[in-house]
Amino acid sequence: MTEMLINWLEWSPQLFKGLLVSVQLAGLALLFGMPIGLILALISSSKNRLVRHIAVALVEIGRGAPALVVLQMVYYGLPASGLTVSAFTSGAIALALTTGAYTSEILRAGLNAVPHREIEAGWALGMTHQDVLRFVVIPQGILFAVPALMGFAIIIFQATALTYTIAIPELLARAYRVGAATYLYLDVLILAGLFYLAITVPFGWLVSYTERRLGSHLG
């Protein structure tokens, strides 16, 4: 046990660097993916049947395709189309696309949860449809969706581990690198798991706290 702790102290700086890469990937995926999800949520509620069906089809394809498959398609597909991007950029794009597909349903549920009487009140005040969306529906819909979006943020952070398959030096990739050098795979993977837990457990508590506070406020 003492030897394991000594090894952990030695490996921790390297794994911490990988953790920072994982956090950056998750942050970029959420930063660019959630606006995509909001756009898809709005389009999927369009009165135009063709536009609505296209949006729904994109969401279903995005949700049905495993994140690993999307990652590989982006990583190998972009260079094949003539675009030269780094592995990190490919990983961020792939995770953002997956984020957009999943958060679209979360946000659509939030938008649908806005009381119709408040929409009618906006119309009664002479607001246009765009103004009602901008000032009434979207702000409140996002507020309703916050706990679920925060919960999804944990999932997408965990999904960053998939990017080790395209040689991004995130947490799991660095753990495997240490394991390959020392053959102590179990020890280093336990440490990597603790690093993941150091992020996901406190954030999970924050999600629960936010859900209670918003439930009390919105109730």
Rank of each mutant, 00 (worst) to 15 (best):
T2L: 10
L5Q: 08
I6E: 15
W8C: 04
W8G: 01
E10S: 14
P13A: 03
F16W: 12
L20E: 13
V21D: 11
S22D: 11
S22W: 09
Q24G: 12
L28E: 03
A29V: 07
L31T: 03
G33C: 02
M34C: 11
M34N: 10
I39F: 13
L40S: 00
L42N: 03
I43F: 07
S44G: 09
S45R: 15
S46K: 08
K47Q: 15
N48V: 13
V51D: 08
R52I: 04
R52P: 01
A55I: 05
A57Q: 05
L58K: 01
L58I: 08
L58Q: 02
A65M: 15
A65D: 03
P66Q: 08
V69K: 05
V74N: 05
G77K: 06
A80K: 13
G82K: 13
G82N: 11
T84Y: 12
T84Q: 13
V85P: 04
S86I: 06
A87F: 12
F88S: 04
G91K: 04
A92W: 01
T99I: 03
A101T: 06
T103W: 04
A109I: 01
G110M: 07
L111Y: 08
V114N: 00
V114Y: 00
R117N: 03
A124H: 08
A124T: 09
L125T: 08
H129G: 11
Q130V: 14
D131Y: 10
V132F: 00
R134V: 12
V137K: 08
I138Y: 06
P139E: 00
P139C: 04
P139M: 00
Q140A: 08
F144R: 12
A145C: 07
V146W: 01
L149W: 01
M150H: 09
I154G: 05
I154P: 00
I156D: 05
Q158A: 14
T160P: 04
L162P: 11
T163Y: 07
T165Y: 07
I168N: 04
P169D: 05
E170K: 02
L172E: 01
L172F: 14
A173G: 11
R174V: 12
G179C: 05
A180Q: 15
T182K: 06
Y183I: 11
L184G: 01
L186E: 13
L189S: 10
L189C: 14
F195A: 05
F195Q: 04
Y196G: 03
Y196D: 03
Y196M: 06
L197H: 06
A198G: 09
A198K: 02
A198I: 02
I199F: 12
T200D: 03
P202Q: 00
G204H: 10
W205Y: 15
V207D: 05
S208F: 14
T210K: 08
